[in-house]
Write a protein that binds this DNA or RNA. Structure first.
Length: 252
DNA sequence: GGGTAATGTGGAA
DNA sequence: TCCACCTTACCCA
């Protein structure tokens, strides 16, 4: 278990998986759960933390009493992992779990709720395959991408098509495969769709390992491959970033 | 030290 | 369609 601290600022799938791995290694076995902020009903969770699961941007802590604590960081949520024993918690800590090697503080999440296994399955049922999960059904994702004429930049962030991609990942992976974010999804040929998936898996694996993304165009000045100034624009209500040379806009 | 924009999603209007 | 959530990083003074 790495020494504690803050990890990467962008709560997309890679970050959730990064925390899930750390929690599996250092937090399983924990018997202490609390809510310094008092907004989370920690008294409804008893026993030991037995397993940690992640799907897309969703995290689940399984406890020995059958409780499954479901967490979604939303836009501003933060998980602070650190070596046990923890310091006095900040008053805004929604949930603290203290394990043998590691503790984690959850701050400002969009979701932190007590479910059971069925409830967690219901959450997972709303999500498409996750590139970071071994059980990801690639063909289902590729079929869904053919079936929509939405911009690929929108389809990639649709959590029902595939789970875990946010604004940063979509910008970087589309740059890696030379596709403009406004390109209609159903206009990508099969080879390009497959390459998109493969690059996404590789990028997310690297990012989950490090806890951060090596950005190519997301919030960057220039395309790292050609030095051309990165262009920005609205795609699906979010700021998209692309290299005008490598990612020319689709024909109108 | 302050102001601003940013990561995602659900719920209200 | 807009707002809430309420942290962090980055810009400027």
């Amino acid at each position: 278990v790495a020494a504690g601290g803050r990890v990467g600022g962008v709560p997309e799938g890679h970050l959730i998986h990064h925390h899930a791995r750390r929690h599996r290694a250092g937090l399983v076995g924990a018997e202490r759960i609390s809510s310094p902020q008092r907004r989370f009903p920690a008294h409804r969770v008893t026993g030991r933390l037995v397993d940690v699961d992640a799907h897309g941007k969703h995290l689940a802590h399984r406890w020995s009493d059958g409780a499954v604590v479901h967490v979604h960081l939303g836009k501003q949520g933060v998980l602070l992992d650190g070596p046990s024993p923890p310091p006095e918690p900040m008053p805004q800590v929604r949930m603290r779990v203290e394990g043998p090697a590691l503790y984690t503080d959850l701050i400002a999440p969009m979701v932190c709720e007590v479910l059971d296994e069925d409830g967690w399955e219901a959450v997972r049922a709303t999500l498409g395959p996750d590139p970071l999960r071994e059980d990801a059904d690639v063909d289902r994702v590729l079929a869904a991408l053919v079936a929509t004429s939405s911009p690929i930049g929108v389809a990639l962030m649709d959590q029902a098509i595939l789970a875990g991609v946010g604004n940063a990942l979509r910008a970087d992976v589309l740059n890696l495969v030379d596709v403009h974010p406004a390109t209609p999804s159903d206009r990508l040929d099969e080879g390009r769709r497959r390459r998109l998936w493969d690059e996404l898996v590789a990028l997310m694996r690297t990012a989950a390992e490090a806890g951060a993304i090596p950005h190519t165009v997301y919030r960057q000045e220039r395309c790292p491959r050609c030095g051309t100034p990165v262009q920005t624009g609205d795609v699906g209500g979010r700021t998209a970033y692309w290299c005008p040379l490598h990612q020319p806009p689709p024909d109108a």
